[in-house]
Amino acid sequence: MNGVHDMGGMHGLGPVGPEPCEPVFHEPWEGRVFALRARTARWLRGRDMGSHRFELERIAAADYLRMSYYARWFTVLVDRLLRCGLIATRELERGAADAGRPQPTLLPPSAGDQVSGGRLDVALTPRFRPAQPVRARNMHPRGHTRLPRYARGKLGTVVRTHGIFALQDTDETGQRLGDYPQHVYTVRFTARELWGDQASDRDSVYVDLWEGYLEPA
């Protein structure tokens, strides 16, 4: 989706603001959110076909920009647990489990589960090869995609192939449509191609793209 999360190339989003001696977690609750997300993943298996990434992207733009990173994670984690019926709003409000509710059980994985991004061992001939010129498609899907807006329609060069990975894209409701195994390539775009004459004629941006995002140029 063309959301505010896809911010490569935008202006006006403030300074970077590095912080000296930054702690891993600024508040204890941030660490708890990180750990809760890690340890609840198995409970969402077979229940929630949504993707953590897309749920983050669907946070309303103004909220997304205002919220801290782990506050976004917490919002998405709660939404998913509620949606799957693993917890209830009342329980969350009371901070205690309802006595009458049945204990959830773990479900076996299902085909639509969010796959972690492992390389897939399937036979598939790559459509492109290193040094080949390619153009990123001009596409604007409403679901999750890993083709950033700044690269769409731009001419680049394949520099490396990485093997075959499951496509992570979803439809606009967040459902993964399947693995759609595809070769992933690193594509080099010159800064001039992306940003015009104002950019350095030496610099470039390398973007990792699934094959379906590319067409021969």
């Binding site: 702690p23 891993v24 977690f25 609750w29 660490g31 708890r32 959110v33 990180f34 750990a35 809760l36 890690a38 340890r39 609840t40 409970w43 917490f74 984690l77 709660v78 647990l81 693993l86 917890i87 329980e91 969350l92 409000e93 009371r94 901070g95 205690a96 489990a97 204990q103 959830p104």
Partner: peptide
């Protein structure tokens, strides 16, 4: 709110406090 969520999930035996502590410790 995070504390409330953790309490509910611990009570439901969906997560274990020691395991959560271990995850935080690992990355800290």
């Amino acid at each position: 709110r995070v504390k409330a969520l953790e309490s509910v999930l611990v009570e439901k035996e969906m997560v274990d406090r020691a395991e959560l502590d271990a995850v935080v410790d690992t990355y800290e």
